[in-house]
Computed example of a mutant assay.
Amino acid sequence: MDSDKFKGRGSHIQPENRFLKRKEVFQFVEGLDMPKYEGRPVSKYFSDSVKNPLSKNDSPDLPLSFSINPYQGCEHGCIYCYARNSHTYWGFDAGLGFETNIVVKHNIVDKLKETFKKKGYQPTPIMLSGNTDCYQPAEKKFKLTRQILQTCLNYKHPVSLITKNSLVERDMDILVELAKLKLVHVYFSINHLDPGLKQVLEPRTATAEKKINLIGKFTDHGIPVGIMIAPIIPGINNNDILPILKLASQAGALRAGYTVVRLNGQLEEIFTEWLEREFPDRKEKVLHQIQSLHGGSVRDNDWGRRIKGEGPIAEVIRGIFQQGVKKYLDGRSMPEYDLSLFNPGNQLRLF
């Protein structure tokens, strides 16, 4: 396989989409068929509309009530991304198709404003994004995330965001104003410190160094910042937990969390192919350690265990993380949101 052909992509395969009757077809405008890559894969964008801009979270092991996702699919190409499986519902594959076929929800900002204006609506912090990264490369072109943040500022609505991309710096002007009103929390996802690993693990994201620098810059401007070390993959990045916590703390981070990797659905095939390609000498060891986190399987749907794992390796990871938090982040916390400011009648002009 020509590795240069797939430079900048996490997955090099197209797993079969169980929702499609045919394995290989030409791609139509509607995005209902799986594309074949004869040359170097390029990103394509598909417009879609939404009825409800907010997704409700019913999982008791996730600390959020509602999320908003302006994009479906993600060009970052993170090989471990749990959102890959949901892309098959749209008629694409969870491998290269997830990274190259991006659905843009063009009316999501208007629908969000309609939601805020509904009689009886009660403000609760919304997360950008619960599924795919809101600052992936598509955002540079479509600017939906910026418009969502501006809408939250106009209506004085609390919002949090998590990203792996330095494009978030572009919107620091809005984030500063939200922070002054205690209406925003920003999280950076940092799960390793090795630039070489980044190129194959999450190829189109910002480097850890860049994200650490942005933590410092945001902190200097009064924007509260936390980090997520997610996911921790035993045998790949677990040795970076303490160094990440130390550097993030020195830059001004106020909070940290973590998850461990799980390989539900087609992720097992995609991740295994990646291990064979990038770390063949570690493949069996890494897979066995992931299995040990999840009751003997790389897959896990059990609430609680699926996020942090269980067993000896999970306990070691938990102990290292807790040790680092106590040493580097003790006494720090994110500020409480001010929900009293919400103003559904606000008609401030966007931009």
Rank of each mutant, 00 (worst) to 15 (best):
H192L: 05
K211L: 09
P224W: 08
I233F: 04
M228H: 14
E202H: 05
I212L: 12
G222F: 08
P234F: 03
I227G: 04
I233C: 05
P231D: 03
A208G: 08
N239F: 15
N237K: 06
I236S: 00
K210E: 14
L197G: 00
D220G: 10
D240L: 14
I212F: 11
P195K: 03
I223Y: 03
D240N: 15
N238G: 12
I241M: 02
M228P: 14
T207Y: 11
G226M: 01
P231W: 01
T205I: 10
V225S: 00
P203V: 08
K210Y: 13
I233H: 00
T205V: 12
T207F: 10
I236P: 00
N213R: 14
E202M: 07
I229R: 00
N238A: 13
I236F: 00
I215P: 03
M228F: 14
K210D: 15
N238Y: 14
L193Y: 11
I236W: 00
I229W: 02
L193K: 09
P234C: 07
G216D: 10
I223W: 00
L201D: 01
N191S: 03
N237E: 08
K217S: 15
L214T: 06
H192V: 03
H192R: 02
H192W: 01
G226I: 02
N238H: 13
K211A: 08
K198N: 12
K211T: 06
H221Q: 13
I236D: 00
I241H: 02
L193R: 08
D194G: 04
N191Q: 02
D240G: 14
P234K: 01
A208K: 03
L214Y: 08
G226F: 00
I232Q: 09
R204M: 11
P224E: 11
N213M: 12
P203H: 09
I223K: 03
I215R: 04
P203N: 10
I236C: 00
I233G: 04
K217Y: 13
V225D: 02
